[in-house]
């Protein structure tokens, strides 16, 4: 850990100003990831701007009929909010699939969007890592990569994005509202996280000094046919090897609209609109779901230890779509897969 100073921001403007003028400054809210990374010398901010007192912890109705979830709403509060449970059960379920009650009590909505990868090498400052120290190499590519990405990797980085919440937000096409020195702007979930390319050190399109204000959930009708299926190495408290957020709008016997996002397989929640379109107007069937899975995974690339993820992702997509179509979402308390 490095020496750092700590400031508690009294207003959004002040918080933004403090960070934007100091490249070594970071916002801190729940701290469940940042403090961890500081202890491991992965993050070494010289200034921490505490934003926990800012008025960003409300969940509000939007004019358009959606919900606006403040950046400081804890994961626990979001997951248990009756409006979210009723209208966006996919989000509630995804949040409950992650972490532990203690972590969900402290972690915030904004912080969850900014979780950093759990790549072993990124976390170990005794090893090279392009994400941690650009240009040093990616030992994961030819090392222990059982948990690593199969889609959208680059020669520079094969890390995955670790959040469960974000996978649901991607499927729900949430919008991230941010404040910066030049005012506010909105970033769609699809554009929020990045693929590693040749700048794996940059996880998101958030600019330095921009602060997440809220996540807006557009009006949606995915309260019946949805599921969040998370597959991992133990039945709870582990990051996803593969996860699938599936949401369907079913009209009679056919699928009117499909949303599908994958976690644990790429540097960002993975969506494929063409694959989703393949489901539109189709009857729900395992065969069709398998075709969609194959299509999504058409460019999947495995490394030494993670070839199983391609097969697992294919199976998970089919299972999740079947769960969603049947209206039998995966329970996050009963660990038995339905």
């Amino acid at each position: 850990m490095n020496r750092f100073s700590y400031v508690r921001a009294e207003s959004i403007d002040e918080a933004v100003r403090e960070v934007v003028t100091d490249p070594t400054a970071r916002f801190i809210a729940g701290g469940t990831n940042l403090i961890d990374l500081m202890k491991y010398n992965v993050e070494r901010p010289e200034r921490l701007i505490d934003i926990t007192r800012l008025p960003l912890n409300e969940i509000e109705e939007t004019d358009g009929g959606g919900l606006r979830v403040g950046a400081l709403v804890t994961n626990d509060a979001a997951a248990h909010d009756p409006r979210i449970q009723a209208r966006y059960p996919l989000l509630s379920s995804a949040i409950m699939a992650g972490a532990s009650p203690q972590l969900r009590n402290a972690a915030t909505t904004g912080g969850n969007l900014l979780q950093r990868t759990r790549c072993y090498y990124f976390y170990d400052s005794g090893t090279p890592c392009n994400k941690r120290e650009p240009g040093t190499g990616c030992p994961a590519s030819f090392g222990r990569n059982r948990i690593h990405a199969i889609l959208g990797t680059s020669n520079h980085c094969i890390a995955t994005h670790p959040s469960d919440m974000c996978v649901a937000l991607a499927a729900l096409e949430a919008v991230v509202h941010v404040a910066g020195p030049d005012g506010t702007r909105a970033i769609s979930m699809a554009d929020f996280h990045r693929l590693p390319g040749d700048t794996p050190e940059i996880d998101t399109n958030l600019r330095h000094g921009e602060m997440i204000l809220a996540v807006e959930l557009p009006p949606a009708d995915f309260g019946t046919n949805y599921t969040y299926l998370k597959l991992r190495d133990r039945l709870s408290y582990a990051f996803a090897l593969v996860s699938v957020a599936a949401a369907l709008r079913i009209d009679g016997r056919t699928i009117a609209e499909a949303r599908l996002a994958l976690g644990g397989v790429a540097h960002k929640p993975w969506r494929d609109s063409e694959a989703e379109n393949m489901l539109r107007g189709q009857a729900a069937s395992a065969e069709r779901f398998a075709d969609v899975a194959d299509y999504i995974l058409r460019d999947a690339k495995a490394f030494d230890d993670n070839a199983f993820k391609i097969d697992l992702a294919r199976r998970a997509i089919v299972t999740a779509l079947s769960q969603a179509a049947a209206g039998t979402p995966q329970s996050q308390t009963d660990k038995r897969i339905q």
């Binding site: 072993y120 090498y121 976390y123 090893t127 030992p139 222990r144 133990r234 408290y237 990051f239 660990k335």
Partner: peptide, 21 residues
Amino acid sequence: DHNLGRFMNHSLAEYHVPVNA
């Protein structure tokens, strides 16, 4: 990791022991 000669999953997040579930 035999390239580095180092144990890599050196945390309780990545070295899995059974949890209550």
